[in-house]
Amino acid sequence: MTAKVKVTNLVKTFGNNEVLKGINLEVQNNEVVVVIGPSGSGKSTLLRTLNKLEAPTSGDIIIDGMNIADPKTDINKVRENIGMVFQHFNLFNNLSVSENIMLAPVELKKEDKQAAAEHAKRLLKTVGLESKFDATVQSLSGGQQQRVAIARALAMDPDVMLFDEPTSALDPEMVGDVLAVMKNLAKQGMTMIVVTHEMGFAKEVADRVVFVDDGNIQEQGTPDEMFNHPKNPRLQDFLDKVLNV
């Protein structure tokens, strides 16, 4: 079986700052990979190169058999199959909840308006917000906004979902709802790459945990291997800090 996502020797520099120093990573179909690591280690940058929000400096990124590092690849087509959820939600402020969800399917002629509206309703139901169909973005709480953002990302029926710290901008009481939606997605077999500091989520949901530090993958394994038998001293150090607060 070929990997859903295959990253080879990925290097990303900002000016003189080499943020990713040759990452190799494979993600299989239906796999849930959780990326952890200290602040500034390059987790977001790694995630953002996967849908080319950041262009890779060198290396290859193959998703569904298409190399997005190749300038000839139509990146818009590839992005239609990769959903992304941001730390700060980034819902479109000029559109209502339903319009946020329907925008891409209608603009990209995947669905007509009617079908898109039906689809949006179903998606809102799965994230527990069917009553917010016509609401404005500004009227929602952070947790609600993030759940709408997940629904929006799902509207194009992607086969990979990227999450960049989806709960770190939320009040603690909102975190549970969002994580529940994500767990549900994982259960349905969605391929997911999740950057998070929620170690509980990692232990419970991840098939594999990847520890990034200093622009490299320092160690990876099952949650049990990573949390109960960490080998790399940096990982031990990191876990000490995040688990004993």
């Binding site: 849908n51 818009n76 941001f86 980034n90 479109f92 000029n94 925008l103 990209l108």
Partner: peptide
């Protein structure tokens, strides 16, 4: 207009022009 608006639109597969017209310009 917050850069995140453009990134969110592009991440859905919207081309630059469509993202500009539907999301960025109205704001």
């Amino acid at each position: 207009v917050n850069i995140g608006q453009m990134e969110a639109a592009r991440s859905l597969g919207l081309p630059f022009g469509k993202a500009m017209r539907r999301v960025i310009l109205p704001q």
